[in-house]
Design a binder for these strands. Structure first.
Length: 223
DNA sequence: CCAGACGTTGTT
DNA sequence: GTCTGG
DNA sequence: CCAGACGTTGTT
DNA sequence: GTCTGG
């Protein structure tokens, strides 16, 4: 699955890689947690352009009475998003690319949990397949998103049952429907992912520093 | 019909 | 143990 | 996902 | 809002 991730790449570089223009700057994030807001890419309404929008992690459906509903929907199963009432509208009309350059998984070994940091060899940024929704409450309006998961492939299966769907760059246009078209979930490109154990994450979510990534071993343990 | 959930993961 | 907040 | 709380009454 | 369970 995907319960924490990083966005360390400078905004300027993200803008280049994802073909965005005139985006706002943002600080690197080393430990993004659910309910926090991060920059996400979606199709600008009524145009063919991509835009960067800050969204809260955890999809809040339109019918929610309050924000708390979103905390339970940080992931959506690829197998069922087309049918689930909570996700189907967003799946048909409101997809997004969640910018990241790594994410965390926890592997239980005995009574302890070992966090692993997964990333590409060159720390290259990538995009999770996401869905977004706009919720309007009595006093505020919030745009939120969820990250799609699927069954882990053989290479990552040793670590986890589920993995986030990563959209290959060539599928970005397909995933962000600019013409109303709907495509299937793109196949992830996780084969190059490296998983390395980290000593721990920071205790407090708000302590959003590089300290949370401290490899124990430099070798990747995928093989 | 109304009331209550609407989600995922992991662990037992 | 289970729920809430981040 | 993890970390931290998890309760009430009355008094300052 | 819409679906499920009773």
């Amino acid at each position: 699955m995907c319960g924490r991730f990083t966005v360390k790449t400078p905004a300027i570089k993200v803008g280049e890689l994802f073909d965005l223009s005139g985006i706002d700057d943002f600080e690197p994030r080393y430990n993004v947690a659910p309910t926090q807001s991060v920059p996400v890419i979606r199709r600008e309404e009524g145009t063919t352009k991509r835009e960067l929008v800050w969204m809260r992690w955890g999809l809040i459906p339109r019918w929610a009475k309050d924000l708390s509903v979103g905390a339970k929907a940080i992931n959506a199963r690829a197998e069922t998003i087309a049918e689930k009432p909570m996700f189907r509208d967003a799946y048909a009309k409101r997809r997004c690319l969640v910018i990241a350059d790594g994410y965390y998984e926890w592997k239980a070994s005995g009574k302890k949990k070992q966090p692993y940091y997964l990333h590409f060899p060159d720390a290259r940024p990538f995009a999770f397949a996401g869905l977004w929704e706009r919720w309007t409450g009595p006093t505020e309006s919030v745009t939120s998103f969820t990250i799609i998961t699927t069954a882990a492939t053989g290479k990552l299966a040793w670590l986890h049952e589920r993995m986030p769907v990563i959209v290959p760059p060539e599928h970005y246009p397909l995933w962000l429907p600019g013409n109303g078209g709907v495509s299937d979930i793109p196949v992830g490109i996780n084969d190059d992912l490296i998983a390395e154990p980290v000593s721990s994450l920071v205790n407090k979510v708000s302590n959003d520093t590089a300290e949370c990534i401290r490899p124990i071993e430099s070798n990747n343990l995928l093989d």
